[in-house]
């Protein structure tokens, strides 16, 4: 349906439910699918692979140390040995599940604000040369929900959007498509710890008045990863029920 047959696809650090759904669709279309997670976050394996394995789909899961660019390159080189190309990269930036509402600057001091930007950047640095060499490729950067009152969420989203814009422009002439999907609330996720006010946000500020279904999140990511998204470069597609409209 999307034309992924024979393509090498790498999904990095993605929320397990989304990764599982994406990998299943990629694998059904006979793509070579690799999922990469930082080793210290181990334990994802069974959860992610259960459904695709039940369907008899083959997906490789790697949990490797990814704390530096050198380590990232090593992991990518391992993937490259198994698959000739990495044609598509899904690069997910997770949101920390802590409540960091910032009502004033004074409240910021001492907060554990450590979004995983190095992992996001290292991933791009490690994969881009491979795509540049082939002069083709698609990168989809994905960020979770952003709500104005939650500083860390906004920081992650804006970082992803900015990197996508800047690199999207640079890579466009090399036939490499970089775009982003900026997500909103997802059905079945627990936001009570990270965003205690999320129900209020849902009822007051969210035009769709509901969280997204899983397929409404995977659909746009798959579209951006496919050749159907022609002539789109550096775009950040906001899949958030109109929250940012």
């Amino acid at each position: 349906m999307f034309g992924f047959k024979g393509k090498g696809i790498l999904i990095v650090n993605c929320l397990p439910r989304i990764a599982q759904a994406l990998a299943g669709i990629f694998a059904e279309e006979k793509a070579k699918v690799f999922m990469l997670y930082p080793a210290q976050d181990g334990g994802y394996g069974k959860e992610i692979l259960a459904a695709p394995e039940a369907k008899g789909l083959e997906i490789s899961l790697l949990e490797r140390p990814l704390s530096s660019l050198a380590l990232f390159k090593r992991a990518i080189s391992e993937i490259k040995q198994a698959s000739k190309n990495i044609d598509i990269l899904i690069n997910y930036v997770p949101t920390p599940k802590v409540n960091m509402r910032a009502a004033g600057a004074g409240q910021l001091a001492g907060l554990p604000f450590e979004p995983d930007f190095p992992l996001f950047h290292n991933c791009l640095n490690a994969v881009a040369p491979l795509m540049l060499k082939k002069a083709r490729g698609r990168m989809v950067n994905v960020a979770g929900i952003a709500i104005r009152e939650y500083l860390h969420y906004m920081a992650i989203r804006n970082e992803v959007a900015s990197v996508t814009k800047t690199l999207g422009r640079e890579l466009a002439r090399k036939n490499i498509y970089m775009n982003a999907a900026l997500l909103g609330l997802l059905e079945g996720e627990d936001y009570s710890q990270a965003m205690p006010r999320y129900l209020e946000i849902l009822s007051l500020n969210l035009p769709a008045q509901r969280p997204a279904k899983l397929e409404e999140v995977t659909g746009p990511i798959l579209f951006l990863a496919s050749d159907k998204a022609g002539y789109l470069f550096g775009e950040s597609l906001k899949v958030d029920g109109g929250l940012s409209a």
Partner: peptide
């Protein structure tokens, strides 16, 4: 249906 959660966006192509 895939774009069911996209509302009020302007997509530059």
């Amino acid at each position: 249906e895939q774009a069911g959660y996209i509302h009020g966006q302007v997509i530059n192509i």
